[in-house]
Simulated assay, not measured.
Amino acid sequence: MNGTFSYELRLNRAGVLSARVYTPARGNGELSVQLNPRWATHNLYFKAGAYVEDTTGPATEGGKVTFSRLITMHQPNNR
């Protein structure tokens, strides 16, 4: 909360999806998973934002996200 971080998402040709997180205060981390080969025939996309899944509390409750920079890159035939 109230902190900055950066992250990077990559999907390689072998179907490995990796998420890397960089934080000045708490260090860095990475998680990689092998996607099921059945996903290879589907187009995947990424959406940046804040998606609060909380269904309890008052309707006025919410969150705020500020993006200072957003870079996207697409490499055709990256499968």
Score class of each variant (00 low, 15 high):
residue 18 S to Y: 12
residue 60 T to Y: 11
residue 39 W to T: 08
residue 46 F to P: 00
residue 10 R to A: 09
residue 1 M to E: 10
residue 78 N to A: 12
residue 9 L to C: 04
residue 54 D to K: 09
residue 75 Q to F: 03
residue 17 L to R: 01
residue 10 R to C: 06
residue 69 R to K: 07
residue 37 P to S: 05
residue 52 V to Q: 03
residue 46 F to V: 14
residue 64 K to N: 06
residue 5 F to Y: 10
residue 45 Y to N: 15
residue 24 P to Y: 11
residue 57 G to E: 01
residue 20 R to P: 00
residue 48 A to I: 14
residue 48 A to L: 14
residue 42 H to P: 03
residue 19 A to Y: 09
residue 45 Y to I: 06
residue 62 G to S: 02
residue 55 T to Q: 08
residue 69 R to D: 05
residue 30 E to V: 14
residue 4 T to C: 01
residue 19 A to G: 06
residue 2 N to W: 06
residue 12 N to T: 10
residue 38 R to E: 12
residue 32 S to I: 15
residue 76 P to T: 11
residue 76 P to R: 04
residue 11 L to P: 00
residue 77 N to T: 13
residue 24 P to F: 13
residue 51 Y to I: 06
residue 74 H to D: 06
residue 41 T to W: 08
residue 30 E to H: 05
residue 18 S to L: 11
residue 15 G to V: 01
residue 52 V to G: 01
residue 19 A to C: 11
residue 55 T to L: 12
residue 70 L to I: 09
residue 50 A to D: 14
residue 10 R to T: 15
residue 66 T to P: 00
residue 63 G to F: 07
residue 7 Y to N: 08
residue 32 S to L: 13
residue 30 E to D: 15
residue 68 S to T: 07
residue 27 G to E: 04
residue 10 R to F: 09
residue 9 L to H: 12
residue 16 V to F: 12
residue 45 Y to K: 15
residue 26 R to G: 02
residue 48 A to D: 07
residue 33 V to S: 00
residue 36 N to E: 05
residue 27 G to P: 00
residue 34 Q to W: 11
residue 7 Y to I: 08
residue 54 D to S: 06
residue 43 N to C: 10
residue 44 L to T: 11
residue 26 R to C: 04
residue 39 W to Q: 01
residue 55 T to C: 09
residue 5 F to V: 05
residue 64 K to T: 08
residue 2 N to L: 05
residue 68 S to W: 14
residue 41 T to D: 02
residue 53 E to D: 03
residue 37 P to H: 02
residue 57 G to Y: 04
residue 37 P to L: 14
residue 45 Y to L: 13
residue 4 T to A: 04
residue 61 E to Y: 12
